[in-house]
């Protein structure tokens, strides 16, 4: 994996973002963020200002918020929510998928029908609908996205588990007295988890984008000054032409993370792909 320059670059980028997020939580001053949990408006000068050094390296956005600090702080918020969504979604999905595969028959059918119903709705409008019903806050949005995301993992995990289940060594394990739970944990899970893991790393990039997309559309935290990349873009949207930096920098932040995550995910997938095992 590390032979490949691009995946190494991806890893560095992702680690960089994670580092920023951790620093934000622990000691924000290190990277120049005064207040990691809120954006500080400046009502004396609410008009967005272009980037200037050293005071406002990214400029300011409406209403007078320093963009650099806002973006740095927002990274933590976005990363936190995105990781949460993907990991919880994957967990639920994998459990349901493997259970369906293992139980097979009637339960399998029921679970898969339910999964299919969820899959029959495209994710963005569905997330909007669910989020709307639950409320327009970020936590509700996360819940909505988890609801949208787990069916994919359920399908995927079930497919993998089914393929593994048919293997003779599983039958052998069962014949030699290994209980159901043992079979699942020791034989099926490891084979399922590897491709799921790869899928998770690829999805993280997508989720960050989707999360920011939905906040851009209208989901927002109850705290209007919680730094969040999508919200920043929507704040800057009315001024996109007169003050383009307001939308450019948050977008670049999302883009670079997505690029890094995708590079990493691709590299992982290539490394773990059984065809590459020579």
């Amino acid at each position: 994996m590390f032979e490949d320059v691009s995946s190494a670059a991806g890893l560095i980028i992702v680690l960089g973002y994670v580092a920023i997020a951790i620093i934000d939580a622990v000691d924000p001053q290190l990277i120049g963020v005064l207040n990691a949990y809120t954006e500080v408006p400046n009502y004396t000068n609410p008009v967005p200002q272009p980037p200037s050094w050293p005071l406002h390296p990214f400029g300011t956005t409406f209403p007078g918020i320093d963009l650099y600090q806002a973006v740095m702080a927002a990274i933590r918020v976005d990363l936190w929510y995105s990781f949460l969504i993907v990991l919880v979604g994957a967990l639920i999905g994998v459990i349901i998928g493997v259970t369906a595969a293992y139980l097979s028959g009637f339960f399998d059918e029921i679970l898969m029908r339910i999964t299919d119903i969820f899959l029959s709705v495209p994710y963005l409008p569905f997330a909007i609908a669910v989020g709307f019903v639950l409320g327009r806050g970020l936590d509700e949005l996360s819940l909505a996205l988890i609801v949208v995301w787990w069916p994919l993992y359920a399908r995927y995990a079930r497919g993998q588990a089914l393929a593994v289940k048919e293997n003779p060594y599983v039958e052998a394990a069962k014949a030699s007295g290994v209980g159901g739970w043992g079979v699942i944990t020791r034989h099926i899970m490891p084979n399922v988890l590897t491709p799921v893991f790869v899928q998770v790393s690829l999805d993280l990039g997508t989720v960050v984008q989707t999360f920011a997309a939905l906040t851009f559309i209208g989901f927002a935290s109850s705290n209007p000054y919680l730094p969040e990349l999508g919200t920043l873009i929507s704040n800057g949207f009315p001024y996109a032409i007169s003050a383009p930096w307001g939308v450019l920098f948050p977008g670049i932040a999302i883009l670079i993370f997505a690029v890094g995550m995708n590079l990493l995910g691709d590299g992982l997938r290539d490394a773990l792909d059984p065809r590459n095992r020579t």
Binding site: G205, Q209, A212, A213, F216, I233, F237, A240, I241, P244, V247, L248, G251, I254, L255, A258, V259, N262
Partner: peptide, 24 residues
Amino acid sequence: SFIGYSLPVYWLGLLLIIVFASPN
């Protein structure tokens, strides 16, 4: 292709507006 699926689609729209629909 890689940039394409890493880009937030709405941000690309904004970018295009900034470049092609304004004197910026």
